[in-house]
Computed example of a mutant assay.
Amino acid sequence: MLNLAPELAERGIAINAIAPGGTATDMAAEHTASYTPPALRDVPPEPVIQSMNALGRLAEPDEIATVTAFLLSSDASYITGATIDAAGGWI
């Protein structure tokens, strides 16, 4: 991505990425359920989630969409070659 950003910047194209953390989606819930050992299926997920990032929760899909909207807006006109970490302070 970093190699492509300068080349495409000459054409007015920004190259950026979003690095999302765990996000509360149906697909994530299905994936988690299918890979959770039976002994842990009745354990509340909150302690595990709290240990995963500084915010102690999964992102809501609209929180990741907001980052996407920002990168697509004119407010991000001077950003290229960047990766935006939207992972809640992943530890």
Rank of each mutant, 00 (worst) to 15 (best):
M1S: 14
M1H: 07
L2W: 04
L2P: 00
L2G: 11
N3E: 10
L4H: 10
L4I: 14
A5E: 00
A5K: 00
A5Y: 00
P6R: 12
E7C: 05
E7W: 03
E7N: 09
E7M: 12
L8S: 07
L8D: 04
A9R: 14
E10C: 06
E10P: 02
E10M: 10
I13G: 03
I13N: 08
I13Y: 03
A14L: 12
N16C: 02
A17T: 09
A17E: 14
A17I: 01
A17H: 06
A19N: 08
A19R: 03
P20D: 05
P20A: 10
G22K: 05
G22C: 04
T23G: 07
A24Q: 15
T25V: 07
M27A: 12
M27E: 13
M27N: 15
M27I: 10
A28Y: 09
A29S: 14
E30I: 11
E30D: 14
H31Q: 12
T32E: 10
T32L: 12
T32V: 01
A33C: 07
S34K: 15
S34Q: 12
Y35D: 02
T36P: 02
P37Q: 00
P37E: 00
P37F: 01
P38G: 12
L40Y: 13
R41W: 08
D42V: 06
D42T: 13
D42M: 07
V43A: 15
P44G: 09
P44Q: 09
P44I: 11
P45F: 07
E46R: 10
V48Q: 00
V48M: 02
I49C: 08
Q50R: 11
S51E: 14
M52K: 12
M52V: 15
N53G: 14
N53M: 15
N53C: 14
A54T: 08
L55H: 14
L55A: 13
L55N: 11
G56W: 06
G56T: 14
L58M: 15
L58R: 13
E60T: 15
E60H: 12
E60V: 12
E60P: 05
D62G: 01
I64P: 11
I64V: 14
A65L: 06
T66M: 04
V67N: 13
T68V: 14
A69L: 11
A69M: 06
A69Y: 15
F70D: 00
F70Y: 13
F70S: 01
F70Q: 04
L71D: 06
S74E: 07
S74V: 07
S74Y: 02
S74A: 07
S74Q: 08
D75R: 10
S77K: 03
S77E: 00
S77N: 05
I79P: 00
I79V: 13
T80F: 04
G81H: 01
T83E: 01
T83Q: 00
T83V: 04
I84G: 11
D85L: 08
D85G: 05
D85E: 05
D85Q: 13
D85F: 04
D85S: 02
A86T: 07
G89D: 09
G89M: 15
G89L: 08
W90K: 15
W90Y: 11
W90Q: 13
